[in-house]
Design a protein around this nucleic acid. Structure first.
Lengths: 188, 188
DNA sequence: CCAGATGCGGAACCGGCGTTCCGGTTTGAT
DNA sequence: ATCAAACCGGAACGCCGGTTCCGCATCTGG
């Protein structure tokens, strides 16, 4: 791949992030190309289709999460879970403007399985370490992550402040308290 | 309005909910008309445009929430807040499949103000009644509602079970515990 | 500096969708 | 039963956006 080609490749990716963020999935290829300062033909040489372009954005975003899950697993005490959950929050915030687009497609099933397994392991460790209540399940953690997504999306428009952190603190308090207070115990 | 016209009006609304749920904003008017068992012309006689059709769906969904907020305000003890929050959860679940479509536009600002005011009042009452910790703000409640939206959306696809209720219980536990445990106190 | 390869731009094509329009049909009051 | 008003269906129009194609420009190894 030639040097200028690589340069354009990255410009297209950036432009796509911008425009998908502004207009959602309705952003059109011509506009993306224009924003990147190239012609549409150039975009199509790197990405088979509009779908492929979006898939690439998803792949890149998910790769960061994989990395985060690995460094969370490196911790042997119970703190890895919170680390990973915060990494999700940060990722959502980073890609807030166009995250819907990505979440509406499902990533590589292998990757999904890997992240899910990491969360299960980290949850088990957190429970064992007493960082969260015994009644907390992997599903609860997944629910929390999904919920943070909704929050970040809703506040991304008008609030530049990461409200999700306060929200997360509050929810974690609930997870800790769960052991003593009367939280519904039946999983699912 | 003739009787058959009213019948068709409602059929179109139902069909729109179905198709927007299946295909999102990409659902096309022709398909909606077909699902409703009418011609496109009929759809356009009732709704100026596709946008107007979506706006009507939004108006109807929000109307239910207004009603819920009123009956929540009717309670004089601190229980109204939880009631309203649960009403939001139920509404999201009811309209889960096409809720994105609605949330991406802003409803009548007057309505937004009314709901916000109701939440502020209910939060104040809940704090006064000790139902939630002193540190809980109206913003926290709004954040919770936004978060539930994300959760319902994520689970609507594969889980018919209302996971959001368990999630809500957990978060409410955190809100109650907030007074004693060290939850960040600075608002926003 | 040259040649071949690689990359580029944007006009043109095509399918799809929102919207309009009008001739025929249904309704319901008299 | 009759008629005017209201309503209906779906073909046709115009626009928009994804994708393709090909002649030209730009890079790089020798």
């Amino acid at each position: 791949m030639r040097h200028d080609a690589l340069r354009n490749y990255e410009r297209v990716l950036d432009a796509a992030r911008d425009l998908f963020g502004e207009s959602g999935a309705d952003a059109c290829m011509e506009d993306i190309a224009a924003r990147a300062g190239v012609g549409v033909g150039t975009v199509y040489r790197r990405f088979t289709s509009k779908d492929a372009l979006i898939d690439e954005l998803l792949r890149l975003a998910v790769a960061e999460l994989i990395t985060a899950s690995e460094s969370a697993l490196a911790r042997t005490d119970g703190s890895g879970l919170e680390l990973l959950v915060r990494a999700f929050g940060r990722s959502f915030a980073d890609h807030a403007h166009y995250a819907d687009l990505l979440l509406d497609r499902q990533p590589d099933p292998g990757v999904t399985r890997q992240l899910r397994a990491a969360m299960a392991e980290l949850t088990a460790r957190a429970v064992a370490a007493g960082t969260v209540s015994r009644s907390v399940t992997t599903e609860d953690v997944i629910a929390l992550i999904s919920a943070m997504r909704g929050l970040v999306k809703a506040t991304a428009k008008d609030a530049p402040v990461p409200d999700w952190q306060r929200f997360l603190d509050l929810h974690l308090a609930g997870m800790r308290a769960g052991s003593t207070s009367a939280v519904g115990v039946g999983g699912r």
